[in-house]
Design a protein around this nucleic acid. Structure first.
Length: 604
DNA sequence: ATAGGGTTAG
């Protein structure tokens, strides 16, 4: 921490304060002066005034001085003046601290300073009031440290603010922002006797934040059951859960609910709707909402650009980006990620290179690892493995494991097996407990036909107690969400589903489908491998959809991982044989299967 | 005089 001057002030004395009659005027003149300032030069000027007029220990003036500071530099300046050890003023009250803590808690990179002044406050014996904790908890949320959060929670109880409604709700929020804090948040939530819409929103939003989206939806249903009216902020969180789950029907229901209940369509709510439609497979509807909305922000633009990118509509994404520039909206880091991933997903290598340079040169942005990641991904998808490798060598920052895994997948897909093996082994040394590294290695050995090495890799995984993340596929039918995992037998239509899968397999083979058995991790014979492939969750979900929807109805499914080679090839056959449009959202993008072809042009 | 929950990302 850089507060040398402040750190030295060990003792804070709070004498009784009395305004002399003749200082009234001075005080008024100072306050008047404080109406118009903000930045550091003006603060210095006023500081001189304060000292000259002998108001160095006037709480009213000092607090006004603190709250006047308009930017971070000014706040730093103000706090160092107010709390400097050589100051003869020691009039510290809660409001003064609150002002400083609030200023620091509002900005994302200064949360630790807010907490520092909170500790100064406690050490100085200044009692926090009911306004203090919402600021302090917000700062804790930004830091995200559970132990810190718990200790602040302890102080809240100690000072008797645990029943203050704002404090409780911010506490839920704070715990939700701390790693591993979601259970603590729920505990606070459960102990509140009269939950209001803010408490519910905080908890629902927290579930979404940690990826427990179905729990978020569940909680929203509970909220409706107990009759608390959701507002636009609640709906943003619920929509965000729909987006995560890929639950288009639920998302549409939310849209009509908003209309019906007359919930205010804030810019943020519109953005959430746009994002939901784009990521749940209806990017045209997202575009329509985008065109009709007023007050678009960078988030609106980015959501729709990103949506187009996921659907492989790269040229449209680019033209929207250009339109955004034309509209005078300055692109930020996230917007560039969207743009570059659009280039990547549509194989627009030249455009991607051009935008990457213009990002650096024209927009003077320092590329982050995510931007480099997009570029590597772009080269890899296009099959330019060598170029990807050169690019990584030239990067000014270290490639992270995500970038390396992209490169490794490309090595496997484009026959650079030896190179892939070397990089993977290196990665395993750095990240020995990351399960997907072993899967990659195992897949490389399969392609090399090094069966004994593949078996050994599998054994290492077992020995370390690692399991493959189970693939799962979600599908919505009649307002219900169904989730299938590989080999799922839990569904009540299970027998019919497996019969359907068998029938699909026979029809596909007749049409020329060859199972891709080389990537099956298990060490079993070929026939069992085929069987293992047929039990993949997406095939089960598709069979379920074919059984339960009228002919010709489009099928929409959502996978938690990337779609495997075999399922991709099988789905193409199924779309043709059964004359169905099949829309698959995988971890990275959308695949629109129609007439035996996929919109990704086998490029994902 | 000062208070709570929300959106975009490889």
């Amino acid at each position: 921490m850089q507060f040398q001057a402040i750190k030295r002030s060990k003792q804070i004395i709070i004498p009784a304060f009395k305004i002399a009659a003749n200082t009234r005027e001075a005080e008024q003149s100072c306050l008047a002066l404080l109406q118009v300032c903000g930045a550091v030069p003006k603060l210095i000027q006023i500081q001189t005034h304060i000292v000259k007029l002998g108001l160095r220990n006037n709480p009213l003036v000092l607090t006004k001085f603190a709250s006047t500071a308009s930017d971070l530099k000014a706040i730093d300046y103000a706090s160092s003046f107010l709390f400097s050890p050589d100051s003869d003023a020691h009039i510290y009250d809660a409001f003064l601290f609150n002002t400083i803590i609030r200023a620091y808690a509002q900005t994302s990179h200064t949360k630790h300073k807010a907490l520092y002044f909170y500790s100064v406050m406690l050490k100085g014996g200044v009692l926090p009031n009911k306004f203090t904790y919402p600021f302090v908890l917000k700062a804790c949320a930004g830091v995200g440290d559970l132990n810190l959060g718990k200790s602040v929670h302890g102080s809240v109880v100690k000072f008797g603010f645990e029943d203050a409604v704002h404090v409780r709700n911010t506490m839920i929020h704070m715990y939700c922002c701390c790693a591993g804090g979601i259970e603590c948040a729920r505990q606070v939530f459960d102990e509140i006797p009269n939950l209001d819409s803010v408490s519910w929103s905080a908890m629902i939003g927290g579930y979404v934040r940690v990826g427990w989206s179905s729990d978020a939806v569940e909680l929203f249903r509970e909220m409706q059951m107990v009759g608390v009216r959701p507002d636009e902020i609640t709906m943003v969180s619920v929509l965000s859960a729909c987006t995560d789950l890929g639950a288009l029907e639920l998302g549409k229901w939310v849209e009509s609910y908003v209309e019906k209940e007359g919930i205010q369509k804030s810019v943020e709510l519109c953005n959430a709707l746009i994002d939901m439609f784009a990521k749940c497979g209806n990017v045209d509807k997202a575009l329509k909402l985008f065109r009709n909305m007023t007050g678009r922000t960078i988030v609106s633009w980015t959501s729709v650009i990103d949506g187009l990118a996921m659907h492989g509509r790269g040229m449209e994404a680019i033209s929207l980006f250009e339109e955004m520039i034309g509209a005078g909206v300055e692109p930020d880091d996230v917007a560039f990620i969207g743009l570059l991933s659009a280039c990547s997903h549509s194989g627009l290598v030249d455009e991607g290179k051009r935008y990457f340079s213009s990002m650096v040169e024209k927009y003077e942005r320092v590329p982050k690892i995510e931007h480099y990641g997009c570029m590597v991904d772009m080269f890899c998808r296009a099959g330019h493995v060598k170029e990807a490798l050169e690019f990584i060598h030239k990067m000014p920052i270290q490639p992270n494991p995500i970038v390396l895994r992209t490169l490794i997948s490309a090595c496997r897909a484009h026959g650079e097996l030896k190179l892939g093996e070397i990089i993977t082994k290196q990665l395993i040394r750095e990240e020995p407990m990351h399960e997907s590294n072993y899967v990659l290695l195992s897949n490389i050995y399969a392609k090399m036909k090094h069966w004994e090495k593949k078996t050994k890799t599998r054994e290492v995984m077992d020995k370390k107690g690692m399991k493959k993340i189970p693939g799962s596929t979600m599908i919505e039918l009649d307002n219900e969400l169904y989730e299938f995992v590989a080999g799922d037998k839990s569904h009540k239509q299970s027998t019919e589903i497996y019969e359907m899968v068998d029938e699909m397999g026979r029809e596909m083979k007749r049409a020329g489908y060859v199972p891709t058995t080389s990537e099956v991790l298990l060490d079993i014979d070929e026939e069992d491998k085929e069987d293992a492939l047929n039990r993949h969750s997406e095939k089960l979900a598709i069979a379920f959809a074919l059984l339960n929807t009228p002919p010709g109805t489009p099928v929409r499914i959502v996978k938690n991982l990337r779609v495997c080679d075999d399922c991709h090839s099988a789905t193409k056959f199924i779309s043709k044989i059964y004359n169905r449009e099949i829309v698959v959202r995988d971890r990275n993008r959308f695949h629109h299967f129609k007439d035996g072809l996929c919109s990704c042009r086998d490029f994902w």
